[in-house]
Write a protein that binds this DNA or RNA. Structure first.
Lengths: 214, 214
DNA sequence: TACCCTGTCGAACGTTCGTTCGAAACCAAC
DNA sequence: GTTGGTTTCGAACGAACGTTCGACAGGGTA
């Protein structure tokens, strides 16, 4: 009785199972995220995850349906939480510049607390297929729209009139480029706290190299 | 004049083989780079590369020793060419701001001409091991130093005194974040020419959101 | 013709992968 | 102690992977 649903993650075993919560389930996701962040999705084997989390190879499959499902759970949970947090940080009071500063700071703070998971979200979207891919991409698009809105407001606040859609889009992509590249180099001991880093990045985004004082 | 690197990729066949040049060899590297850029290194199988380039599976191994060697050849060749080009573009005459503009424009122009190869260079360093990893990392470090030097000059030119090493380092990493993220979204039809994009990015890097006019 | 070097390839080898299956262990409720 | 659902796992399966091997065609040279 295999599933014949086109996409879906499918029921698999009867109708019970897979609480979606629980201490062991969390440990599984966290362990998998750590390995996938370090080595990449396809370089991470289920045997690695089993060793890391203390489960047996077969035992893990009680909690999810497939390796891709495991990746999906990590991305969906992490990105949803981040988006929710950012919607609060970005829609609060203050000028557009202040909201942009909060967005950057809050993103980096989230990164510090969930580095592995966020790295997986950022770099492993393309390891998902079908509906899982589109579901995560939808969240990502929402997050981009949220940031683009603020960037547009900053540009309008300063320029006196709305900036072109393309200019806003590109500036937002520059911002995400900076944010997403942080995974590749940030080490607290060498680079200072994320609060400091957030200030530097905000200054760079607002006034660039020749506008920021050291 | 071939390498006798420590790490060695093993002699494999006698002492001949692997010209390192030749039309077929180029076709092999280009085809492999295209697949690896699109799907990633470990998702790209040797059978895929064979199909893409018209070789047989075994036939390809006349030209290199292993899959990792193939990846290394792509990265080493591409990055060396880029670095050489950028050393010229960045050490020419003009103010530091002008040199930064040339660096950005030249990097993006190279991206347009060698998109697949550069994407592989940017995202598949960690698929290399041992001496191959370190060899490519050395080129990457040189490229970073080149950019950091110009960024530092821009900051000094404006601030009147040298900026802190950390500030220069972080600003350079912000710049590379923007540049390297371009792979993820740039489409000429929608986003305009790379010359336009280079101008936008240079303006953003120099004066930020509130300094650039739309 | 005989020889050898350069390219090429079908077929296979050994390994590792994600996943499955049946059985066993656990445990609260009777 | 028996039951029945929940959770765990050793062992195996089939597929796919990178790589190798022996063979062989082509063509330049003696």
């Amino acid at each position: 009785m295999k599933q014949d649903l086109p996409e879906r993650s499918a029921p698999a075993r009867s109708a019970n199972s897979r609480p979606g919560t629980g201490e062991k389930y969390e440990r599984l996701l966290a362990g998998a995220a750590e390995l996938m962040a370090r080595r990449g999705f396809s370089e991470t084997t289920m045997r690695d995850v089993a060793r890391q989390t203390g489960f047996s190879l077969a035992g893990m499959y009680y909690y999810f349906h497939s390796k891709e499902d495991l990746l999906y759970q990590i991305q969906q949970r992490t990105f949803s939480t981040l988006l929710e947090q950012q919607q609060q940080a970005a829609t609060g009071p203050g000028t557009a510049r202040e909201r942009l500063g909060r967005l950057i700071r809050s993103h980096l703070a989230f990164y510090v607390r969930h580095a592995h998971e966020l790295k997986v979200c950022t770099y492993e979207l393309e390891s998902l297929t079908g509906e899982k891919y589109h579901a995560v991409e939808r969240i990502r698009r929402d997050y981009f729209a949220l940031a683009a809105q603020i960037v547009g407001q900053v540009m309008e606040e300063h320029g006196g009139r709305p900036a072109s859609e393309k200019a806003v889009r590109h500036a937002t992509l520059f911002l995400f480029g900076m944010l997403n590249w942080v995974f590749m180099w940030y080490r607290p001991r060498r680079d200072g706290s994320v609060d400091e880093l957030a200030d530097e990045m905000t200054a760079f985004a607002l006034t660039g190299l020749v506008g920021s004082a050291p």
